[in-house]
């Protein structure tokens, strides 16, 4: 699979943000990110974890190329395909589920690929439906399928399971892992949920409150497939001891 990737995609994606400032409504400047440096390892799941409002979404929008008003650089090879899952599904309500996925799919993404992907995230029956007919959980699955349909070189996930009930969220996390492991992709996920982070991460990046920067990068050695509740709690306890400020709240 490596040989189909653009040259350079197997080297880490370098994210260097010197400063990102928001202008609030009354004109005061608010520094959201300062001296942020991270190398995202290829074909691994990097999870950014930080308190709410620390600038995680801002960071992801910069990496996705949606915001270029910052100083620094984001080293993504030109032509790299991006799959992005927002906090809300953001599907086009006037297109069917199938059309929503096909619209952004990679050129070599066949009808068979679509059927297979839809099967694996459990939306095969929903393809001819319109998004309004779906529950939030199902719409999230469609958004997940859409992100994978681009055959992304970089998969970005912005708190993709927020505001779902815990059971649905957990099922979707396992689903994400399954689809992701079937085609390992460089993935960057942000969350404020510690257990979600520990379940999914190869590399767990702990972020400081605003202005945000990297506090530490923890490598989680246990493969995702073997992380049961007990393992997760053990890792959590260990991290809580070492980074109380980051894990106390959750």
């Amino acid at each position: 699979m490596n040989d189909t990737r653009p040259a350079g995609a197997t080297s880490p994606f370098e994210i260097r943000i010197e400063e990102k400032t928001h202008l609030s409504a009354d004109g005061t400047a608010l520094v959201a990110i300062r001296d942020f440096a991270l190398d995202v390892a290829p074909e691994s799941m990097t999870v950014l974890m930080g308190p709410s409002g620390c600038g995680k979404t801002t960071l992801l929008r910069i990496v996705a190329g949606l915001d270029d008003r910052f100083t620094g650089s984001v080293g993504i090879p030109s032509g790299a395909r991006i799959g992005l899952m927002f906090q809300e599904p953001r599907l086009l309500p006037w297109r069917t589920v199938r059309q929503n996925i096909e619209l952004v799919a990679a050129p070599d993404f066949s009808a068979d690929d679509l059927e297979r992907l839809a099967q694996s995230v459990g939306i095969a029956d929903m393809l001819p439906r319109y998004p309004q007919e779906l529950s939030l959980g199902l719409a999230r699955r469609v958004a997940l399928a859409r992100a994978f349909a681009t055959k992304p070189d970089l998969l970005l996930l912005d708190e993709p399971f927020v505001s779902l009930d815990e059971r649905t969220a957990d099922r979707l996390r396992r689903l994400l892992l399954e689809v992701w492991q079937a085609r390992p992709t460089t993935a960057l996920l942000v969350t404020h949920n510690a257990r979600e982070a520990i379940l999914l991460a190869d590399e767990l990046v702990l972020l400081a409150p605003r202005p945000t920067h990297v506090i530490a990068v923890e490598r989680i050695a246990v493969p995702q497939g073997k992380r049961d509740t007990k393992t997760i709690e053990a890792i959590h306890a260990d991290l809580l001891r070492r980074y109380p400020a980051n894990f106390l709240a959750s």
Partner: peptide, 9 residues
Amino acid sequence: GLDEMARAY
């Protein structure tokens, strides 16, 4: 939001 989606993809 949809505009961002279109740009991101």
